[in-house]
Write a protein that binds this DNA or RNA. Structure first.
Lengths: 342, 342
DNA sequence: CCTGTTCTTCAAAGCGCTTTGGATAATTCT
DNA sequence: AGAATTATCCAAAGCGCTTTGAAGAACAGG
């Protein structure tokens, strides 16, 4: 059932039916009702591809999704997506996801833009330098980053968590508790969120006259397995760390297991603070020793990004171009004073 | 840059350029090269909406994604998606995801079909009865289910894991080890995968002259938090279970924590088998007591579904309509003989 | 040299929708 | 009453692509 069929059946022109359906004023209430009812009955739904072609709008936001055999599913991704979806469903938007191998992302974005399928583009996992950001900046499609490239000035729209601040604060707390040997379980080195977290820690240590030892920082995907292995290695060192900062609760899960396995007491022998993205399946407050965390909801970020993207497309101008969210430091039991002779 | 501009610039007709680009034989090699080069240089990418409109094909598969404020991200979903993406990227397919509130899914699918954006539809989280399946069956778009509705005969294409068989086998093992009091930590009751797992367990118990006690089965979302709470409740019972079957490693994570907290030894005081979807962030072999599991990779299922869907669209006929995958039973340390006087 | 093929290329129709610029009928004003 | 609005509705163009049907050019055979 298409417009033509529907209008034929109603004895009206396509113009009138289209206008009735889209709420234009140039059509009498009587015929509008008639049209609406017929559309209802016949289950008529406009063809979006045609609509898109005619209007240039599609009510859809595009994103590329990294895909490679060795890349598994990422719970952070789906958590974020659920936030984005929450906003999208309100405005009848949908997503177009273009999978791309990591070395083909720029092209995937190009295709996405040229496809005519999307009104705006969302980008995450920012690296530095990031050719994707360059591309977006030089194209004319609306877009929004989750994250920032490095540096102080940013001439592109973004939403980011103050990762540096979060880890700075976390380290500060640990320093006040007397800790001196810090380890860092971080995400992949190429991501700016990981860089900034490391910088936050380094700054705090620097202010206390300390340095972050290179052999006590670990970069990897944020899985419990990686956390476990890295932590085991740290604990095997002659002067093991007494404080560890962890880039995600998934990493922390593995780290805690390693700590337990080594017979150490979390919060006593060793303190740990994890960054908590508020993943719905893994809550830091439910750990056997509840985790002290820096918290910032990924889902909320997704929702906000959806809101801003959709709002921008709708032409509302009271939305900020750039937002930096502070993470909250939540104290729980995984942090305690540095052990004596630590 | 569109087709018209490109052909004007080349002094050719749109027809010829289009044919050159799409590899039709009615164009000389010389002009084809010229066209290809010009397309390259100008960065011309065909507008997919127009392409779709003209051909009816879009190289895209659609799926609806449940969205509600209280539904968080689901790691199972992103794990599956990564498999789907692996296949999609090979064939330059993309996804269109329509978020929908749980009570509006049927409509979301209707819109997806009518949208003209997608060539095929994928459906998961099958319930019974499932109006979405009815809809798909009566519409003419290719589709594929991950899961089945209940019953023996199925007149729709699906890929499913033999959930009943998996839990039957798992229970059998536990029975052989002498266990008699079983608990079940299951997913949401409305999903057929959960129903089938329960049936598998019940059958095995029935064969041993036992029954599954209603107060020892728990249905919930598959988060560690839910697992923890439910397990705590089980352990507080006067005659607590000695064997527990768990529908996911996330649930198992919480359950194990409850077991540890109660001072019980996993694999000795209590045995546990979890179903392992092979989530990349949570490996059962890495638990402090490695988990015995029934294993079936969600990612592999995603990849296979992508393969079949894309294959069907390409017209290949050597693909099965229906597939039932057996889960492997992997023995690890979380299962042991039932404790004496158990 | 003309005719029948094969090789290239093109003009134009069509996919399903929105939207511009009129047209017609109904209403109001003087 | 006739003129000027206003309320409805419509025909047709256009979005960017594919594809059908046909035409022109080049070539062979008789």
């Amino acid at each position: 059932m298409n417009l033509k069929q529907l209008s034929d059946r109603l004895g009206l022109s396509q113009t009138t039916v289209s206008r009735a359906l889209n709420g234009y004023p140039e059509v009498s209430e009587a015929t509008r009702e008639r049209v609406l009812k017929a559309a209802q009955q016949t289950g008529y739904k406009p063809n979006k591809a045609a609509q898109r072609l005619a209007t240039g709008k599609a009510k859809s936001i595009g994103l590329v999704m990294q895909s490679a055999p060795e890349i598994g599913g990422d719970p952070h991704f789906s958590e974020f997506l659920s936030g984005l979806a929450e906003e999208a469903v309100k405005h009848d938007f949908h997503f177009v996801m273009a999978p791309a191998s990591p070395d083909d992302e720029v092209n995937a974005i190009k295709r996405l833009i040229a496809s005519g399928y999307v009104d705006a583009i969302f980008l995450a996992h920012v690296v530095d330098p990031d050719p994707r950001v360059e591309l977006l900046r030089s194209s004319s499609i609306p877009y929004l980053l989750h994250g920032r490239i490095m540096g102080e000035t940013h001439d592109y729209p973004y939403l980011d968590v103050d990762n540096e601040g979060a880890f700075h604060t976390a380290a500060k707390l640990l320093l006040q508790l007397g800790h001196k040997r810090f380890a860092l379980l971080n995400g992949m080195e190429r991501f700016t969120f990981a860089m900034r977290r490391k910088i936050g820690l380094e700054k705090a240590l620097g202010e206390a006259g300390l340095e972050l030892r290179p052999d006590l920082v670990h970069h990897s995907v944020m899985s419990d397995q990686a956390g476990f292995r890295a932590m085991e290695r740290f604990l095997a060192l002659p002067d093991r760390p007494t404080a560890v900062l962890c880039a995600s609760t998934a990493l922390a899960l593995g780290a805690v297991r390693a700590i337990n396995k080594a017979g150490l007491k979390l919060g006593t022998d060793i303190s740990l603070i994890a960054h908590d993205d508020v993943l719905s399946t893994l809550r830091p407050e439910n750990f056997s020793v509840p985790l002290t965390t820096t918290r910032s909801s990924l889902r909320a970020a997704g929702a906000r990004i959806g809101q801003r993207l959709i709002g921008t497309l709708a032409g509302s101008s009271d939305l900020p171009e750039q937002e930096l969210w502070e993470a909250e430091l939540i104290m729980r039991a995984s942090t305690g004073p540095a052990p004596a002779c630590g």
